[in-house]
Design a protein around this nucleic acid. Structure first.
Lengths: 193, 193
DNA sequence: GTTAATACCTAGTAGGTACTCAGTAGGGAT
DNA sequence: ATCCCTACTGAGTACCTACTAGGTATTAAC
């Protein structure tokens, strides 16, 4: 009467990858506070201790997900586009293709505003890094690079949330393009035609 | 050995108000999934069944908070400012003075992206109402009122989240003013000077 | 074929979850 | 002064929470 077990045993790396995928989806749906180890374990077809064997703790699980994303992001952004505007457009285009990831970050970004959230520091650092990156790209093109960087990030984040709520109604890439029109009007003259 | 009880008993309306205040703060910190009835009850100085007597259930609690906010918002926005830009500036100024409420909405907005979240429908309707309102204000001033409305809402939401994470570093009102500069450049000529 | 490593499970702990039931106590109206 | 309404409590239910200890069984190396 032992349960049929179609997935008897996976190598650690493979299982870890599966765990991260499942967790990503679940956090995007429920946030980290709403996530339960049981749900993740069920989603992977193993027991809770089996899951804990791979990630150690619930916080470890979150960490694994965020680490994996950092890694994946580094790989995909290695192409340094030339103008600030092109960089932003590339970012938006990539995000438009992975709503699940975008939602993971949208939910965690809001949740982690609380100082005692396990991802609080991670997101504070991430936001700072993003702003610094934008600001650096803008340096020389505008009087207040820091200020514009905040606005760019804000517009991207804001559009993404609206898009996530109503993906059929809002075309993320198109909306961003027309937003970029006004954001970059001063520093992106049509010389590149 | 009965516990000292300094707040023996409150009229329903007053207690309800207190419950809403405490819940607002806690949801802003933990989200709805992370909220526990015990925490709310403790924050009000009563037991969990005492709390349930007033709100019926956890969902009822959330509903009470959201209803109260709608009411409060209606009261404070009754002043119809003239131009779209002034309306937005007024909104931002008001939000800058109540970070706790802004955070409540930021967290719930992200969390309620999940279709089975108890506030999902509420936030979908709220977003639609907001967009329609902006769009109506913009009609006649621009070619694509709906598109601009989304951008305005996105910018406001995005700036607010960044501001919440780093209130000392970011001046919400100033940031919005300079963002409004580019958003309204075409349709808000300096005729009103 | 034996051994060593490890992916995974069973069973259990200590505590938290929303919620119910039945009763108590305090304040306003009469 | 009494009655009644209701704000509120104590005790309890059924279940979920992350996590641990110790063991099993599968796989890979030799």
């Amino acid at each position: 009467m032992t349960l049929r077990r179609e997935r008897p045993r996976l190598p650690a790396a493979e299982r870890r990858r599966q765990i991260i995928d499942v967790t990503t989806r679940l956090i995007a749906e429920r946030g980290f506070w709403g996530l339960s180890m049981q749900d993740v374990a069920d989603g992977c077809g193993l027991t809770v201790p089996g899951l804990l064997h791979h990630v150690g703790s619930k916080d470890g699980l979150l960490l694994a997900v965020l680490d994996h994303r950092d890694e994946a992001d580094l790989i995909s952004v290695e192409v340094q586009a030339s103008s600030p505007r092109e960089v932003c457009a590339a970012l938006v285009r990539r995000n438009a293709g992975q709503p699940e990831i975008v939602r993971l970050f949208a939910v965690l970004q809001a949740e982690s505003l609380a100082p005692d959230h396990p991802a609080h520091d991670y997101f504070a650092a991430r936001q700072q890094k993003t702003l610094d990156g934008f600001s650096l790209l803008l340096k020389g093109h505008t009087a207040d690079p820091d200020g514009l960087a905040v606005k760019i990030a804000a517009m991207m984040d804001g559009l993404q949330v609206h898009w996530l709520r109503d993906p059929d109604e809002i075309d993320l890439v198109a909306q961003w393009e027309s937003a970029a029109e006004m954001i970059f009007r001063d520093l992106d003259p049509p010389t590149g035609g």
